[in-house]
């Protein structure tokens, strides 16, 4: 999430700016926590399929690590492309 999405705050009194910034912070915290939960859910679902033991075996653990790593890199790349589109940067095909 990008603070620039709030547009022009210059007209607001100091008190309202603080409140707006606090709101953005709260939404970012909520979003980060949800993202964490959805990342865990995805990597668990994709990597863990046997329940003969109660601890992750080596293969499951490394699958989860690669999955999470890959998702974070994916998410970062999507974020960059998304920001470009939001700013109206046109690029050739």
């Amino acid at each position: 999430m990008d603070k620039s999405m709030l547009g022009d705050l210059d007209g607001l009194p100091e008190e309202d700016k603080m409140r707006m910034a606090a709101m953005v912070d709260q939404l970012q915290i909520r979003d980060s926590l949800r993202m964490y939960n959805s990342l865990v859910e995805r990597c668990f679902t994709d990597c863990v399929d046997t329940f003969r033991r109660k601890t992750l075996d080596k293969q499951e653990e490394s699958c989860v690590r690669r999955c999470a790593e890959k998702f974070l890199k994916h998410s970062m790349r999507v974020g960059m492309r998304f920001a470009e589109l939001n700013q109206g940067v046109a690029t050739p095909d």
Binding site: D46, C47, C63, R65, R66, E69, K70, F71, K73, H74
Partner: peptide, 11 residues
């Protein structure tokens, strides 16, 4: 887009 076997951590 992402291959679900997660053979590598890199894209």
């Amino acid at each position: 887009c992402i291959e679900k076997r997660y053979k590598e951590a890199e894209l």
